[in-house]
Amino acid sequence: MSAFAAHSLEADLALKAQARRRKMIAGFGFFVLVVTSTIAVVYPFYWMVMASFTPEGYSLTNAPLLLPDRFSVEAYQSVFAERPLMTWLGNTIAVTLGGTAIVLPAALLASYGLNRFRFRGRMVFIFLVLLCQLLPASALIVPIFLIFRDYKLIDTTLGVTIAFTTFMLPMAIWVLWGYIQTIPHEFEEAAMVDGCNGLQAFIRVTLPLAMPGIAATALFIFLEGWNHYLLAFVLTSDTQQWVISLGLYSFIGQYVIEIEQMMATSVIAAFPALVVFAIMQRYLRGGLSLGGLKG
């Protein structure tokens, strides 16, 4: 009995050590994987950041791999001094948040309706959502300009915000619909058995469960809006109304491109978007567990 126990303990220890070793190797392998893939993805952006810290005209002939041998912050100084960068950022934030605020509730209602009800015209609606996104943008430039001009929406924040909903809404419905579909009906039904009505069940049960999907969708349309260029270009001719993606073009002159300044501006422009993502990403944590259904 005792021999058996000792043997078992020894074997157990050996087994544990082996498992630990395997786990360590696996952990190290995973670490290498994470680091290399992150480097591969981030490198082009890193290069841009690096270029933004070099003296004017430097990065075009000396494309250093890792570090430049000359360093300068003049690009950052001059973009703040020479361009209404803060106005552009403010406009970008206004139209992107505005668009997200209009689109998200509408998309949430629509995708809930599409998922929880079977009704005539349902597939037609889904199909139309897809249709909305299919026409190449260059064909929409002239119609959108003429229509928005008729409604005096050129050079207004409202105009650009409305225009942004045109690409945000179909995307948001499409993504959210797919997500809510994966949440089992049973949760809501259980809540309804407990005395909730349909809407209450939706708000109390499905919404929290759908949080990762809603957060992802919000981030999704926010990032798409943040860098959207074409509609903003069509609808604004006043520099003061530009969004940042339009402002970037102002560094392209007839004979020169102020590439360092352009890189500096896009570093500045990417920053708020990334901060929003860094904060929002914790909502991507899953709230769903089978225990929830039982309890």
Partner: peptide, 19 residues
């Protein structure tokens, strides 16, 4: 790492082409 992986998406198209 999650945030870093989103970087390409936060890069404006014009700048993507330049990079």
């Amino acid at each position: 790492v999650r945030t870093l992986m989103m970087i390409p998406w936060a890069t404006p198209w014009l700048v993507v082409t330049l990079i």
